[in-house]
Design a protein around this nucleic acid. Structure first.
Lengths: 149, 149
DNA sequence: CTAGAGTGCGTGTATATGCACGTATGGGGT
DNA sequence: ACCCCATACGTGCATATACACGCACTCTAG
């Protein structure tokens, strides 16, 4: 009797990963008409005409800065997002283009359908509770600060 | 006033992804001595001397079969996992090697520390509730079956 | 026994994610 | 003006994840 046969799913992290995989595939099944991944949708929803610095966006989305750079790449290639000059030569800023706003609008509709489908399947109240629980977990589990040397 | 400025985090999927990122970094900070990623740890915990077919393991972990193939690669290169002949020439089976069992044991200890640290930080009862909530969500949200054509 | 359906896999491609490292710019103290 | 540090980025590398394709092997209807 080892831990493997006993309770492989006792790991909160493993459970969260699994749930995330299922949720991602659920949302992306609904987003497939727009060709957006869930992460890309999320990015579009956090952008607008007002230029945003990369580091600011990364901090907002709590993503590694380099992850953000690469995630933006396909959106820029599609012409949905564009870089603009910032107040600082170091600082790279991005905005949503006109086409980007169109896509975002379409994707938003599909996302709404997905969210409603989720609520229909699992129960509106249940999803509300799940959201609260996730939110509380996010409040409690603070992100690890990068090692200060 | 658009949806972006209103409630970007209304998305259950986005929230789950964010929480998963935090949890992953939390666990991996504790696992870093063994050099294992959380996913790799999870893999080791699901293996033993008894050969397991890839498709069986993929189904168990609810991972795409091809994801599993690639995830196993570094473990095989390290000599912690080895392929063995199966009852079927199609079927690739893997087992945990002796070194693999050693690493698993070390990682298990580190994982225990991580889990306890998590409980200390967020509260033992709270983690228990979170686990239950995640488990219930997994029960309710069935994985999408591949399109039947 | 053989053709075709079904099963199990690997690889190519693309995104998601984060760390280590190196580059460039901005701002202060002297 | 200059040096140094902090800030902001990009790239290389490695893993995580899934889909589309194509190959190999098994099994069964005829």
């Amino acid at each position: 009797m080892n831990a493997a046969t006993e309770k492989p799913l006792a790991c909160t992290g493993a459970r969260a990963r699994r749930l995330t995989r299922r949720l991602t595939s659920f949302y992306e099944a609904h987003l497939r008409d727009s060709g957006l991944k869930l992460t890309q949708y999320s990015l579009l929803m956090h952008l607008d005409k007002t230029p945003r610095a990369l580091h600011q966006l990364a901090s907002l989305l709590e993503l590694d800065r380099t992850t953000l750079t690469r995630s933006l790449k396909p959106l820029i290639e599609q012409g949905w997002v564009a870089g603009v000059v910032g107040p600082d030569a170091r600082c790279r800023c991005v905005v949503l283009t006109a086409e980007g706003r169109v896509v975002r609008q379409i994707a938003l509709r599909q996302w709404c359908v997905a969210q409603r489908a989720l609520e229909d399947e699992l129960g509106r109240d249940y999803i509300a509770r799940l959201n609260e629980q996730l939110e509380e977990a996010l409040l409690r589990l603070k992100p690890l600060l990068p090692e200060e040397n």
